[in-house]
Design a protein around this nucleic acid. Structure first.
Length: 448
RNA sequence: CGGGGCAUGGCGCAGUCUGGUAGCGCACCUGCUUUGGGAGCAGGGGGUCGCAAGUUCGAAUCUUGCUGCCCCGACCA
């Protein structure tokens, strides 16, 4: 993509409403535009990132055996009356009346709807287990939205729902999602730590929140330091096999958010030099809730003995739009965003320091062509602008690599390649520069 | 929902106290000079001053009501 043809409304000054760094940087980098409180338009650069995150989530869900479907944003109140949540949910639920005076709502979550879909389609234990998921926009009318996409009212979320005959089977489904989450977040360059979580108003007794550590995190968290250094399960992890070792490894060490933190246990179970108190952002949650919905909504299957039993369920959420903010919170510096390769809006930026100069123009065209043919997505700053402005813009939007082509370098047969994360610069021939970037990008994508 | 604050061009702000018909920086357009870490000069374009009533010869400015947005707290993916 040539920057001269792109839509990238960069802001030089910080918008005053943006308090935390991810919100500020998303606005400044032209990723996002606020429509009203907690509701945003995603501009091209931001939307690319959102889509990349969504794709990773989808790929890892599919690998774990979950099946994608799509439920509507608008739901009938009827369903929610069945589960008794229509009254219970309160003002966070956006209620709508259609032209026929029917009570509708903009879905804040989908347990009722998926349970309805499941009960209509599955009657036998032979069709279990199943994990169904969708990635859809949701709306929760937060009293006080804040922190940009981290706590919006409208947000994109992946939620999965598991259906099993027994609690033991349900725990297996839980573990599949647990492992899938470890891989999902790791692929985005995040070290997510599963922590014991409150089961909250949804009820149930087995739940973990996946937390990434960040200074600006919304809640205090406490965990064993070793948890932060664990590597994710491998790409070819066998989801049909026994996943308990992965889960046990993460859950036998102390990890809790402030809501469920037990200081005495923390001190007793974790040696002093391994205690970590930090702040964290919740990016996902896994949740077993048994028959909480299947019972009242009559989602039953016939077991082997012919008896009708309510299905055991769990739900598993990932805040897709929140992740954009969370990743920035974890990956930025004073100059701007520092994207992990896997979610970067473009693989690399190409800077022409003197647009209109035939030597730099043709060198840039060559590089652009070559890397594009190699499958890289390049943002080429071909605008007629000052060098300094181009450097600043490129640092702000945080593409992992910058390929810098100017007349001085070219005269010496050199092109500069800068790594955004490390700041390391190398002066290379055109060939070597292309190889370095193409190679590094390919390597970073290997785990995909 | 309690407490506080702010609404003036795309972004950041001044002007409001003391009423006289809107200004600055950045961004944008044109030209010239510049050109390796947000250049200089000159000339331009863009705003029903959040909305509605009221006071007044005259309202961004005073009065009343409303709305929106932000921050702290309680709540939440």
């Amino acid at each position: 993509m040539r920057l001269s043809q792109y839509f990238l409304p960069i802001l030089r000054d910080d918008p005053k409403e943006a308090e935390i760094v991810s919100h500020r940087l998303m606005l400044r980098a032209g990723m996002l535009r606020q429509s009203s409180a907690g509701i945003y338009s995603w501009l091209p650069l931001g939307y690319k990132v959102l889509n990349k995150i969504e794709t990773i989530v989808r790929e890892e869900q599919n690998r774990a055996g979950a099946l994608e479907l799509l439920m509507p944003t608008i739901q009938p109140a009827e369903l929610w009356r069945e589960s008794k949540r229509y009254e219970a949910y309160g003002k966070e639920m956006l209620r709508i009346t259609d032209r026929h005076e029917r009570d509708m709502l903009y879905g804040p979550t989908n347990e009722e709807m998926i349970t309805e879909i499941f009960r209509a389609g599955v009657k036998s234990y032979k069709e279990l287990p199943r994990i169904l998921y969708h990635i859809q926009w949701k709306f929760r009318d937060e009293v006080r939205p804040r922190f940009g996409v981290m706590r919006g009212r409208e947000f994109l979320m992946k939620d999965s729902y598991s259906f099993d005959l027994t609690k033991d089977d349900s725990v297996k489904s839980y573990n599949k999602m647990f492992v899938s989450y470890l891989r999902t977040f790791a692929r985005m360059g995040l070290q997510a730590v599963p922590m014991r979580a409150e089961t909250g108003p949804i009820g149930g007794d087995l739940s973990h929140e996946f937390i990434i550590l960040a200074e600006t995190g919304e809640s205090a968290v406490f965990c064993h330091k070793d948890l932060v250094e664990m590597t994710a399960p491998p790409r070819d992890v066998d989801y049909s096999g026994d996943l308990t070792p992965y889960v046990r490894q993460r859950t036998e060490l102390y990890a809790a958010t402030e809501d469920v933190h037990e200081p005495e246990r923390f001190e007793k179970e974790v040696p002093e030099d391994k205690r970590l108190s930090a702040r964290g952002i919740e990016v996902g949650q896994v949740f077993y809730f048994g028959t909480k919905y299947s019972e009242p909504m009559n989602a039953k299957v016939q077991g082997p003995n012919g008896e009708l039993v309510p299905v055991e369920m769990g739900s598993y959420g990932i805040g897709v739009s929140r992740l954009v903010g969370a990743i920035i919170e974890a990956h930025h510096d004073d100059a701007g965003i520092v994207w992990p390769q896997a979610v970067a809006p473009f693989d690399a930026g190409l800077i022409n320091l003197k647009s209109g100069d035939s030597a730099t123009d043709s060198a840039c065209e060559q590089i652009y062509e070559r890397l594009t043919h190699a499958g890289l997505d390049i943002l080429y700053d071909d605008r007629d602008d000052r060098a300094g402005a181009k450097f600043t813009t490129m640092d702000l939007i945080g593409l992992p690599w910058q390929i810098i082509v100017g007349p001085k370098g070219l005269a010496a047969g050199e092109i500069e390649v800068k790594n955004r994360a490390t700041g390391q610069k190398s002066n290379l021939s055109l060939d070597a520069a292309c190889q370095l970037v193409a190679g590094a990008v390919a390597e970073a994508k290997e785990d995909a």
